[in-house]
Structure formats: C-alpha cells, structure tokens
Amino acid sequence: MDLMGMMGKLKETQQKIEDTKKRLDTVLIDEQSSDGLLKVTLTANRTIKSITIDDSLLEDKEQLEDYMILVMNKAIEKATKSNEAELDAVAKMDMPMIPGMDNLFK
C-alpha cells in the first residue's frame, strides 16, 4: 500500500472539494411560491442572495411568514441536494476506496 501516494491523492481531493465548494457559491438556486408572490435565490452553498416579496403579501404578516418558511425550506432542500451531489461526485471520482473513508467528507 503506497501511503505517500494515498496522502497526495487525499490532499488533491481535499483541494478539489474546496474548489467545488467555491464554485457552488456561484451556482444559483431559484425557488418561489406556487403563485410567484415570493421568490428566493440562494447559492448551492445555502447562502441567501435575494428575496423578492410581492406587495400584496405585506398586508398579511401570517401569510408572508408561512410563505417564507415554505419557500426557504424548499430552496434550502434543493441547494443541499445540489451541494451534496457535486461534493459526492468529487469524492467518488478521486478517492481510493478505503473502508470507512467515505464518511470523512460527510
């Protein structure tokens, strides 16, 4: 077992994971309420970039709060799936299969 080669590969993979995380900052996920009155954009790293609220929602605080929770959760779920798929792809592509190593990047 070539330990030095494996360590080098590990470093390389960590670098690729960092690069992927940086790139995910530029991947935008849009989500909106079914009627389009509330729109949210966030990065695949789950950083909120913009929120657009239709004026009609400003008259109903409870509805606005419900919309926020619903739309944000959907957007975060989408971003998380995108994030995990990208990082999994990098890890699987580059990792030598060492038992137990796949839990390292979770």
Score class of each variant (00 low, 15 high):
Ile53Ala: 11
Asp19Met: 07
Asp88Gly: 12
Gln14Trp: 07
Glu65His: 07
Met7Pro: 10
Lys39Val: 07
Lys9Pro: 14
Leu24His: 11
Pro99Gly: 05
Gln32Ala: 01
Leu10Asp: 13
Lys21Tyr: 02
Lys16Gly: 07
Leu10Pro: 07
Leu24Pro: 05
Met95Ser: 02
Asn83Phe: 11
Met93Lys: 15
Leu10Val: 06
Asn73Arg: 07
Asp55Gly: 15
Ser34Phe: 08
Asn73Ile: 03
Asp25Gln: 12
Ala89Asn: 10
Glu59Trp: 10
Phe105Tyr: 01
Thr41Cys: 11
Tyr67Asp: 00
Arg23His: 02
Leu10Gly: 12
Lys61Cys: 11
Lys78Cys: 01
Ile53His: 11
Ala75Arg: 02
Glu59Thr: 08
Glu18Cys: 08
Ile17Asp: 05
Lys21Gln: 04
Met97Phe: 08
Asp25Ala: 13
Lys9Val: 12
Ile29Trp: 05
Leu70Pro: 00
Leu28Asp: 09
Val40Gly: 07
Lys49Glu: 15
Gln15Ser: 02
Glu62Asn: 11
Lys61Gln: 08
Lys49Tyr: 12
Thr43Gly: 09
Lys16His: 13
Ser34Gly: 09
Ala44Glu: 00
Ile98Trp: 03
Gly5Arg: 03
Asp35Val: 06
Met93Ala: 15
Glu31Trp: 14
Lys11Met: 04
Leu58Gln: 06
Leu38His: 01
